[in-house]
Structure formats: C-alpha cells, structure tokens
C-alpha cells in the first residue's frame, strides 16, 4: 500500500528518441521488402503505393505500443524490496483519453478516404474495353473471346494484348471459384448463378500465373493456368489461329505424343499427370485414381470413355465431378487418339 520512493523522472524524451529511430528503421525495412509479385497491370501501381502508405502509418503505431511496454518493463519492473508496494492511484485523464480517441479516428478516416480514391481509380471504366468471359469449373478455367457475328473463341489459356483495357465477366459452372492473377492485383469470385466483373489493363508483357483463390474442392491447389500478356500483333495472330478449325493446328506438325500429353498436357488441357499416378509417365499425383492400379486390363473404348465422360463410371472412393468433363473439347481428336493409344499400350504391359 505504500508508494515507492524511486526516481520518478519519466523517460519520455528517451522514449520518443528510441521510438523515432525504431520507426525509421521499421519503415525502411517495410519499404525495402519486396512484398508484391511483379506488377503487370495499371491497377498494380496505385495498390502498391497504398500498401507503402499503410506501412509508413502502421510501423510507428506498433513501435509506440512496443516502446511503452518495453520502457515500462525496464523502468517500472518490481525490484527486490518492492514486493508490497503499490503504484500511484491514477484513475484516468480525460484529456489524454480524448486525444487517443480522436487521433486514431482521424488517421483511419484519412486512410479510408485515400483507399476510396484508389478504389475508384482501379475500377474506373476505360475506353475501348475488350470483353472476356471467364468460366470457372472444377478444376479448370475457360476464357471466351466474343467475336462480332461469330462463335466466341474459347481457350484454356488466357491471352491478353498489352495496354488494352480488359473487362472480365466471370461465371462458375459448379461451386465458387476465384479468378485471381496476382500480377494484376485484382480478383473476384466466380459465383454460380451470377456474373461478376472486374477490369484490368495489362501493361507488361510476360507470362503470369492465374490462381483459383477460393477453396473449390479436391483439385483447388491445381486449378492453375497461365495468363500471357503479348503484343497487340501477337494477340491478333493468336486470335486468328484460334478461329481456324482445330485440326489446322495438328495438321502442320507431326503426330502428337501421348506420353507427353499425359505428363505435360497440351497447353490447353490440364495434364493427366497433375492428378493421376502413372509410373510409365513418371507422375505421382493422387487427386484421381492411381492408373498403375486402375489401368491394366482396360481396352481402348473404355479408356476413351473415362477421359471424355469421367463421371459415367467412377472408381471406388472417388466422387463425381472431380475430373473436368471437358477433355473432349480441350483435346483435339488427334490428341485424344494419341492419348488413348498410349494408355492402351501401358494397359497392355
């Protein structure tokens, strides 16, 4: 109950000094860290800047709390002989309480205002927007490029011309997915029953991962394709090539390699080996049935049916809807035949 007799000179100046140094170091480190993946859209800049501002504001707040805790421990920690002492009975200080209510409120309102300005900026409509429909399904993406007066061009890979504003119209065929290109900084859920949208303007050429960010089932981690940002000329020629009938592609080259298709896919369809184990092709995934066990004894017709209509007949312990049902579309007939032929050989071994 007695008050202690100790040098009560409050070390406020010292704390401000240490706090300022710690904040400066913290901010420097916070800004030096390479937080984001390389930005590839005009949306990335404002978001990355907002992030930096948040770092600059946040570090001093954390430093303030930590410094007060640390100095309290150092200066006011109980020493031998003080076991029965009490601190001074300070019950509060209205002025101080108003200050630490008002200042955070002002900072927060300012940050919200800034964030709102950034939001309006990154979502602003642009002239000459290109529409792309994005369709999510377990566990793949399909991108549709509507063509005036014709069938839309469909692709399993996302191709975008540099510096052309794009608006994605996102849908889902089954459960919720999320269409995210980390390099663009933007994402939105693909929701069954409604169409969601967002805009980006890709501004850097390159290949960037497209990630499904909403848990969508067994293959969620593998629901990945690539976004290719290419020059407008390259985009145009890609689009033209896509418009030609599918056999055009394989007619010009040699016959497709079934084993390579199994292990690596064709750039459009997800590789079989991403989900299936097959020793001959050197894959060891376990999303779908182990083909070393399931394959032997199957004939070509059964193999083809399992690829094109995966839900018609299921292996024990596997549910319907795990395997994308669109391999009949994403593989050309030649590729499908090559794959069936290859698997038939393995099955016969």
């Amino acid at each position: 109950m007695r008050e202690r007799k100790r040098d009560e000179r409050t070390p406020v100046l010292q704390m401000v000094f240490h706090g300022a140094i710690a904040s400066a170091i913290g901010i420097a480190v916070g800004l030096a860290i390479d937080w984001f993946p390389e930005g590839a859209s005009t949306q990335a800049g404002p978001i990355d800047t907002l992030w930096d501002v948040l770092i600059v504001v946040s570090v001093p707040i954390f430093v303030t709390v930590s410094i007060i805790v640390l100095f309290s421990v150092r200066n006011f920690g109980m020493r031998p002989g003080e076991e029965n002492l009490d601190g001074p009975p300070i019950h509060g200080n209205t002025r101080l309480e108003i200050v630490w209510t008002a200042i955070p409120a002002i900072i927060l309102v300012a940050l919200c205002t800034y964030a709102y300005v950034v939001l309006v900026d990154i979502e602003e409509a642009q002239a000459n927007e290109m529409r792309i429909n994005v369709v999510g399904q377990q566990f793949t993406w399909t991108f549709e490029y509507p063509q005036a007066g014709g069938k839309p061009v469909r692709s399993q890979q996302l191709y975008l011309p540099q510096d052309r504003p794009v608006r994605f119209y996102v849908k889902s065929l089954d459960v919720i997915h999320d269409f995210w290109v980390p390099a663009f900084r933007m994402k939105v859920d693909a929701v069954p029953g409604i169409e969601t949208r967002y805009r980006v303007t890709p501004d850097r050429r390159g290949t960037y991962p497209v990630v499904c960010a909403e848990l969508c089932g067994l293959g969620h981690a593998f629901m990945r394709v690539n976004a290719h940002v290419v020059s407008p000329q390259a985009f145009k020629s890609w689009l033209t090539k896509q418009k030609q009938p599918a056999q055009g592609a394989s007619a010009e080259g040699e016959a497709p390699d079934g084993k390579a298709l199994f292990a690596e896919g064709n750039g459009d369809a997800t590789a079989c080996g991403a989900c299936h184990t097959l020793a001959d092709a050197g894959t060891n995934a376990s999303i779908g049935p182990d083909l070393d066990e399931a394959l032997p004894g199957q004939d070509a017709a059964a193999i083809k049916a399992s690829i094109v209509k995966p839900n018609a007949e299921l292996s024990d312990g596997f549910q319907a809807g795990v395997m994308p049902p669109n391999y009949g579309d994403t593989l050309s007939p030649e590729e499908l035949d090559a794959l069936v032929e290859y698997l038939g050989e393995v099955a016969g071994k």
């Binding site: 404002p46 907002l50 948040l54 946040s58 964030a115 980390p182 900084r185 933007m186 994402k187």
Partner: peptide, 19 residues
Amino acid sequence: GISGVMLAMIPVTIHVSDT
C-alpha cells in the same frame, strides 16, 4: 489489429483476400 486495418482497405483486400 494493424493488419486488420490494412484489410479494411478494399484495394488491399482485393489482392490479399484468400491468401
């Protein structure tokens, strides 16, 4: 709490949600 305030800022959340 600080990362919570960062997450309140919509443009940040658009990038980092579900990460």
